[in-house]
């Protein structure tokens, strides 16, 4: 059997990283062939949804590259990239898939050698991790699906897009929020939305009790009850039937959150 060759997708921003990858070519820096590149105008164009979907579909690794902070051709696009990939990483950690499979790196137009090095290193790391197990692990697949759904969530989009304003300009009431508390809010929101999406996943096929869900989610039942209550109030989850004394819930299928 031949050696495992990871499938890697690399997103390159047009102005810095794509030029850096070209420079690696011009300078003949050699690196493994596994990387398949997708050119985008700005790294900010790459949504958490796309990278998570790629991992869900079996990509062994995904890398997003852009201009160094402060160098963005679109002023601050890469700032958002950083925040969005941070969110994608948080979601990835919740799914249980190795979060190293998603990488964010800055490669300038003059860093051909760095680009070659980053790709080589990523391939090496992925070889160490082995193939993405998603196709053999239904539970993981379902969790990745939940992560994709969560990444489309309004609250998370608002947070990752408006974080800069919350820190520098303040909220609608002019209250400035520091980086640390924003991180905390993000962390909590990401976990909540992921779990909500996962509950919808699990209850989509067949109705479940809070206890069953809690086991699946790996958290105390009282936390799960909070999610269930919140989902019911958002009209996404309904009581299906009562099995003995145990209420069973089922997702309301409307075509997505």
């Amino acid at each position: 059997m031949s050696e495992f060759e990871p499938k890697i997708i690399i997103f390159l921003c047009n102005w810095c990283s794509y030029a850096g990858a070209d420079l690696a070519g011009v300078s003949r820096y050699q690196y493994p062939t596994n990387a398949r590149t997708v050119r985008v105008m700005c790294s900010t164009r790459v949504s958490p949804q796309i990278v998570l979907e790629l991992l869900k579909d079996g990509a062994d690794g995904v890398m997003v590259t852009g201009c160094h902070p402060g160098d963005c051709h679109y002023i601050n696009g890469n700032y958002y990239t950083e925040r969005r990939m941070e969110m994608a990483h948080r979601l990835l950690k919740l799914t249980g898939l190795e979060s190293q499979r998603l990488r964010l790196d800055w490669v300038s137009a003059s860093e051909g050698e760095k680009y070659a090095g980053v790709v080589t290193d990523f391939v090496k790391e992925l070889k160490g991790l082995g193939p993405n197990p998603v196709h053999k692990d239904a539970k993981l697949a379902s969790r990745l699906k939940a992560a994709v759904d969560a990444s489309k969530n309004f609250r998370l989009k608002v947070l990752s897009s408006k974080e800069i304003n919350l820190i520098s300009k303040g909220n609608a009431y002019g209250e400035k929020i520091n980086q640390q508390s924003v991180e905390g809010i993000m962390e909590q929101a990401t976990e909540d939305e992921f779990k909500a999406s996962l509950i919808l996943q699990l209850t989509n096929k067949k109705s479940q009790s809070v206890k069953e869900l809690a086991k699946e989610l790996g958290e105390p039942t009282d936390r799960t009850i909070e999610h269930v209550v919140s989902l019911r109030s958002r009209n996404l989850l309904a009581l299906d039937h009562i099995d003995g004394a145990t209420p069973k819930y089922k997702a309301i299928v409307t075509g997505g959150a």
Binding site: M41, C42, Y80, S161
Partner: peptide, 26 residues
Amino acid sequence: KGCGACEVACCTGAITCKHFTDKQII
């Protein structure tokens, strides 16, 4: 200038950034 930041931020899929659309990238 077509950077695509808005398409990613959009919560309802109402925005398409031409020539580098979500559909094309997928």
